[in-house]
Design a protein around this nucleic acid. Structure first.
Lengths: 341, 341
DNA sequence: ATGAAAGCGCTAACAT
DNA sequence: ATGTTAGCGCTTTCAT
């Protein structure tokens, strides 16, 4: 660990500038000299210090990634996408997991700034709550480019890549309508989150566009958990004028529905049709075919990383524009949406 | 971004040494002076550079984490555990995802060394194949403490935390035996991986200890994929002298079994009992109760991080001992193991 | 209690 | 084509 560029210089009988040149392929170096240097590097098992280089260059080549829940495959896939692009550009990733905790998120941001990272990719825990002011202040005063991934930070404009939840929900509900369903319920997500709001909007839009009246009693407010969805589904199944289809606003909640269906001996789609938002890989593997809206997670990660790289390469110290990309989710039909008399 | 310790010194009318002292709470600083400095820091929104500090201290406070598949919740949970402990000790995590690719893993190791990280936590992609020599050479010559997580690098001894796969498998099979099963099949993992070998060993041990002859035709060699497990299960169901229970050596493979069962109208556990290794959260949520051996993933991450911290604090440049911890997996019974005539 | 100065390992003009 | 030198932003003796 103690071998430095000077050791190499000494061993090769050249100056440290020359060593630096062969290290960076910059400037002119006689072939013979280069070989000597390379040999010394090999022999001493030398690895240059990125720390020293960063300090000297005032540039770290590392970017920070902040996620709320690393053990959720949704974020795992985002990171996978981020990582792929980062790899291609030889960027390091410093990972911060916040456990959905705003204070940890703030702490992470501070940490990252100390590390003099080039930019930040963040999937904000943030909802509409009122801590937002300090939160925003922190992000904005970072002086570092930030790209949001599928989140929403109130009152403020940031670069980001998002999913078009409205369109996704619209497509799902439209499909149900096309199948012949008219009594379509929705189980929403936590309504202080942007995706939940947008998905509900998409649901309403689809009904309106097809002249189906929106019935408040068909709108059920969930909270993204399968437990709540389970309870709601039980209720739905007890309704006198029961819907024939449910649009479920998140993957976890789909699981709750399935459990309730199972207990009440409800067959999909014979007794109840269903379309979810976001996939649950496992269900397909075990042969349980549930249609869903597929938000392109890996793609989101890639897109965000690319956007950040673009911003960094533009080289502007102050940002002059807000970049936003909306990714379109795909509808994946498995048969659970069918209308069967 | 341009504000440095010298700016603060100037603003506060002191030397940079003094600023450093208040930053690190070291040495003596008059209260009044400290306040001036703190004020300047606040006003200029100054964040010290970890890079410069690292260079000066020859110590980075960051550790590298290398995993093969970030989007697999198994590794997600490990990282979550690692992260928790790292947080408590104010350590940064540099994440490397290798996509099960040995070359990427090697590259990651090099990258990490350049970053002068303090230590490495790695879940090796490595199996028994022959690239091992370069691989081992690389790790050993890193000159950095390494802690393995649940992996196995052939021919070599490293610090590490592992799961006692033998005991896990033994417990599972013993449970089946206690239930009254005698014809018990196993679907193994990829046999060039250590966990697969050990789980098979545990299976055999349980049979032997209970005087049940090992029947080669009940040993099925899988490869951790659900597709293969699906095919194998179909075969099993066709056997003349069909087993009454299957011990399935990985969570993904359990899914393949379930699909096959479903297609053939096999009821669990009436027609076939089953116990898997590693949980599949989703199955429980939808009310499908499959018993399984639970390897404590988050715990493994924590334990590994703690071990690394221990090693670092021991302060030895050369390691004088190999530390190894084996974590005991727990049996979680859900009813799928029952013997029903 | 505070300051001056050397040094961490590298890069990048500037010389030669 | 190669060497000299001055930083990069911080910590840490050593003085005072």
């Amino acid at each position: 660990m103690a071998v430095t560029i000077d050791d190499i210089a000494k061993a090769a009988g050249v100056s440290r500038a020359t060593v630096s040149r062969v290290l960076n392929d910059s400037g002119y170096v006689k072939d013979e000299t280069r070989k000597k240097v390379l040999k010394a590097i090999k022999e001493l098992n030398y690895t240059p210090s990125a720390i020293a280089r960063s300090l000297s260059k005032k540039k770290t080549n590392t970017i920070g990634v902040v996620v709320p829940e690393i053990n959720n495959p949704f974020f795992g896939e985002i990171i996978k996408g981020v990582n792929q692009v980062a790899d291609e550009h030889n960027l390091n990733l410093i990972l911060c997991n916040t456990d959905e905790d705003v204070d940890k998120e703030l702490k992470a941001l501070k940490l990252l700034k100390e590390q003099r990272i080039q930019g930040i990719l963040i999937t904000p825990t943030s909802t509409d709550s009122d801590y937002n002011s300090e939160y925003l202040w922190t992000i904005e005063n970072l002086g570092i480019p930030v790209v949001l991934i599928d989140g929403h930070v109130k009152y403020s404009n940031f670069n980001g890549v998002f999913i078009d939840h409205i369109k996704g929900a619209y497509d799902a509900v439209k499909t149900l309508i096309d199948e012949g369903h008219e009594k379509i319920a929705i189980i929403t997500g936590r309504m202080d989150s942007r995706p939940a709001k947008e998905r509900l909007a998409g649901y309403k839009k689809a009904l309106k566009m097809h002249n189906i009246p929106i019935r408040e009693e068909y709108i059920f407010y969930g909270d993204y958990t399968h437990e709540k969805a389970y309870k709601i589904t039980k209720e739905i199944l007890k309704m006198k004028d029961r819907p024939t289809a449910i649009f479920v606003s998140s993957n976890m909640m789909v699981l709750g529905c399935i459990k309730a269906f199972d207990e009440e001996n409800i067959q999909i789609p014979k007794d109840m049709a269903i379309i979810g938002f976001d996939k649950v890989e496992v269900l397909n593997i075990i042969g349980m075919n549930i249609s869903f809206i597929n938000g392109p997670t890996i793609e989101m990660g890639k897109t965000a990383m690319n956007m950040l790289i673009d911003i960094l390469q533009s080289g502007k110290t102050t940002e002059t524009e807000i970049k936003t990309i909306k990714l379109l989710p795909q509808l994946v039909l498995k048969g659970s949406e069918k209308f069967i008399e």
